[in-house]
Design a protein around this nucleic acid. Structure first.
Length: 473
RNA sequence: GGCCCCAUCGUCUAGCGGUGAGGACACCGCCCUCUCAAGGCGGAGGCGGGGGUUCAAUUCCCCCUGGGGUCACCA
């Protein structure tokens, strides 16, 4: 059975790169009717950030990337948090030690720094310590690490399913640390041990891991385990071209969520980073992606994470994919957070219907449509000028509008047009002051629709308030 | 710098020897129009360079260049 996993570290905000890799792992597992596992790699006590794990899991829930096994769900290979599996790694490291495939090294960080300076990297000098001596020093409590004894000379072949086979000269592979002096495993050891024990068959991860894959291959071989398939996805780039990072742009999924990006849109956009549909379609759901997915359609060039297109896609979901009902539900938390209230769900849906083509994120909706939810909206500078210019017209409009039997479009449209014509005014000369008065701004949905939605009372009140903005005189 | 990966419009990409190099975002113009959008139509814009292979290269091979990754007791 195809088994994939993501192995995020709880070291900070939930990263879009994690979401990106999670997406392809999820897709591949689902496509093959396999399993998708979430494993937390919290083996770096120095970089550990409390709460980060929960935020990563919440991100996955939000995105709808469901997994079969994980720290919060359990599963046949529990625990799914590496800090809770320490004895396992120690046992495996010791096994390699006993079989002469690893060795204890006692250099201090300072000594290592010195060796690095002189030799360009660790030179494997602790290989020369006689095993008995090493065991004695270890038994005496001397701090040390366990390192992999990379076979030298030799070569190691690594097969990446997307790029083919690469042969590494073992000279290029360092005797990496497997077990740190604090008893925690390094990524290399923990990752290989867990992937094997958890039955992971397909390792889909970022390209940053490509060059350390020979280490992993060597480990699988040392343990006598089957080597999984490796797929290294291109790294998401920042607009400058460098790997996406906190310095170069927004990397937190929470940021996009708070901006009002929809999870479907983010997922769709992430899929477009490297993958393309056979028919060129750019708007598609997760299940459509699973249906059509194929590694042959994955492009290896590092894609730039371009927020412009993400926003466009989000707008596309807002106006073409979500129902008004769904959209309303998504918008509510954003309105609430802004302290805005809505009369009724029906009213909110109607406003959303009018505003839909005019915003690309939910945050933008709240910013641009505040006047639908409060009479206490602000007046933009330009709107104020328009009101001033059209003060006389507004006064007359107030009379006209208050005389109308209702505010249905069939009523207001002919009335306003006739009004403009009688006075020899362009329609916009009438509309702009009115628009400015009842919304505080110059860019809004169509007038007739707005009048109907806002209603006669509110509109008349608003005209009154707008004129009052001009002050006496 | 060593090693590794990658390379089509500004950006995301299609292409898998013979195409007027296609689409999308962004940009520009026009249409629609009460404003702003959305939408429709049109435009501008690309195969990094040099060698091969071939009747024929964007496409296959090599070199260069460029970009990225990696060289920790971080993942």
């Amino acid at each position: 059975m195809v088994t994939t996993r993501i192995a995020p570290s709880p070291t900070g905000d939930p990263h879009v790169g994690t979401a990106y890799i999670a997406l392809f792992n999820h897709v591949w597992a689902r496509k093959n009717g396999g399993r998708f596992i979430v494993r937390i790699e919290d083996t770096d006590r120095a970089r550990y950030v409390p709460g980060a794990e929960e935020r990563i899991l919440e991100m996955l829930r939000w995105l709808g990337l469901d997994y079969d096994e994980g720290p919060d769900k359990g599963g046949p290979h529990a625990p799914y948090r590496q800090s809770e599996r320490l004895p396992l790694y120690r046992r495996h490291a010791e096994e390699l030690l006993q079989r002469g495939l690893a060795y204890r090294a006692f250099e201090t960080p300072e000594e290592l720094e010195q060796i690095r300076k002189e030799k360009g990297g660790y030179d494997g000098r602790a290989r020369n310590i006689p095993p008995e001596e090493a065991e004695a020093r270890a038994a005496a409590g001397e701090p040390h690490v366990i390192r992999l004894k990379v076979p030298r000379p030799g070569t190691t072949e690594v097969k990446d399913e997307l790029r083919g086979t690469v042969v590494y000269d073992n000279q290029e592979i360092p005797d990496v640390v497997l077990l740190k002096s604090d008893g925690y495993p390094t990524y290399h050891l923990a990752n290989v041990v867990d992937d094997h024990l958890m039955g992971v068959t397909d390792v889909i991860r970022g390209e940053e891991w490509l060059v350390s894959t020979p280490i992993h291959v060597l480990l699988y071989r040392a343990f006598g385990w089957a080597v999984p398939k490796f797929y290294h996805m291109p790294l998401l780039r920042a607009p400058g071209g460098a790997k996406l990072s906190k310095r170069t742009g927004h990397t937190s999924v929470d940021y996009y969520r708070e901006e009002g990006i929809l999870p479907e849109a983010l997922l769709n956009f992430l899929a477009l980073m490297g993958f393309s549909m056979p028919d060129g379609r750019e708007l598609f759901s997760l299940s459509e992606l699973i249906e059509a997915f194929s590694w042959e359609r994955v492009h290896l060039g590092g894609p730039v994470f371009d927020t412009e297109k993400l926003r466009w896609l989000n707008g596309k979901y807002i106006r073409e994919v979500l129902t008004l009902d769904e959209l309303a539900e998504r918008a509510k938390p954003f309105l609430a957070r802004a302290g805005l209230d809505w009369k009724s769900d029906a009213y909110l849906r109607r406003v959303l219907e009018l505003m839909r083509p005019r915003f690309e994120t939910l945050k933008e909706f709240v910013e641009k449509a505040d006047y639908f939810f409060t009479d206490d909206y602000r007046f933009e500078e330009k709107a104020l000028k328009e009101i001033q210019k059209g003060a006389e017209i507004l006064k007359e409009l107030k009379t006209l509008l208050s005389s109308l039997p209702d505010f249905r479009q069939e009523t207001t449209e002919p009335a306003l047009k006739a009004f403009a014509e009688e006075r020899g005014l362009k329609l916009r000369q009438v509309m702009q002051p009115l628009r400015a008065a009842i919304t505080g701004r110059l860019a809004t949905p169509g007038m007739y629709e707005m009048l109907e939605v806002l209603g006669k009372d509110a509109v008349l009140r608003r005209i009154e308030r707008a004129l009052a903005q001009l002050g006496p005189g």
